[in-house]
């Protein structure tokens, strides 16, 4: 495998354009029709198998598109040692598919060797900050490259958190040297759920650290006391999130921007339309700057 001659492929770097998630339901259509879109992102763990259709389709897709590997399971914030098997699989994928970007989340998902397979919230404390930044460094050292850390959607805050999430993320990036994957929808979801200001979040993020943005749809759960926004990735990007994205593009510049849609997947053209809208926002902002 290591000695295999790499097939003809487009270059690795992810352009400052919109991309879409490549999901199993669209494997055939994407690799047959090769739609016009800047790049593709996949969930790394879905390619941890030893063989079969997922890897074959990923290779076909990789020939025509730059690929970003987005992880959901490295459990960076956990107190367990980093999972070596997981890291080894990820490193092998990186060597084979030469992704332009590699990312995971500002969260944890395992303790004492058992996983909850969810992006669970960290307390934003000095202890957690040192721990998380150190683990990002370990992962980057092992993988031999920069990774991006994404702000998650959250549904609770801890009583003992002392650092705003945006400062925590900034510090993680400063200490570890990682990049930031800024999920605009997650900012909106968390800001709404916790009653803080999404604008303030956006202003506090260090522009030189952000390498990618995510956009997705959410769901509103209504209760007598009010609403909770749930990051369901099952709908078009909401108007409020497009507005926030517009501001983010003006502040941070044009960046690789992913349309994330994971459940109740729409026909491919719907995804591509969402991507086009992100591209138009970037083109317009760029024209204003120029």
């Amino acid at each position: 495998m290591a000695d295999a001659i790499m097939p003809d492929r487009v270059d690795s770097p992810i352009p400052a354009k919109a991309g879409i998630g490549l999901r199993a339901e669209h494997y055939r259509e994407v690799t047959d029709s090769l739609p016009t879109v800047g790049w593709l992102e996949v969930h790394s763990e879905n390619y941890f198998g030893d063989g079969g259709a997922p890897l074959e389709y990923l290779e076909r897709a990789r020939e025509h598109y730059p690929i970003s590997l987005h992880g959901v399971g490295l459990s960076i914030g956990s107190c367990d040692p980093l999972n070596q098997r997981h890291l080894a699989k990820l490193k092998s994928l990186i060597q084979i598919y030469e992704p332009g970007l590699v990312s995971d989340h500002l969260s944890w998902s395992s303790v004492d060797g058992s996983y909850l397979n969810d992006l669970l919230p960290l307390p934003y404390t000095e202890e957690a900050l040192r721990h998380f930044a150190e683990r990002v460094q370990q992962a980057q050292d092992y993988l031999g490259r920069e990774i991006l850390i994404e702000n998650p959607s959250s549904y609770l805050q801890y009583t003992h958190s002392t650092i705003p999430e945006w400062d925590f993320l900034d510090e993680v990036a400063r200490i570890s040297g990682c990049g930031i994957l800024l999920d605009i929808n997650n900012i909106h979801v968390s800001a709404t759920n916790h009653g803080y200001d999404a604008q303030q979040y956006l202003r506090a993020i260090p522009a030189n650290k952000v390498r990618e943005m995510h956009l997705a749809g959410f769901t509103v759960n209504r209760y007598p006391e009010g609403e909770i926004l749930i990051d369901t990735h099952n709908a078009p990007v909401a108007d409020e999130v497009w507005a926030l994205y517009n501001q983010a593009v003006k502040r941070l510049g044009n960046l690789p921007t992913l349309i994330e849609w994971d459940t109740d997947l729409p026909p491919l053209p719907v995804l591509l339309n969402e991507a086009r809208r992100a591209d138009e926002i970037m083109e317009k902002a760029h024209a204003l700057v120029a």
Binding site: E45, N46, G49, G73, N83, R85, H86, S114, Y115, N117
Partner: peptide, 8 residues
């Protein structure tokens, strides 16, 4: 309980 970060 799951023992891996890969749901598969």
């Amino acid at each position: 309980r799951p023992e891996s970060g890969n749901l598969h």
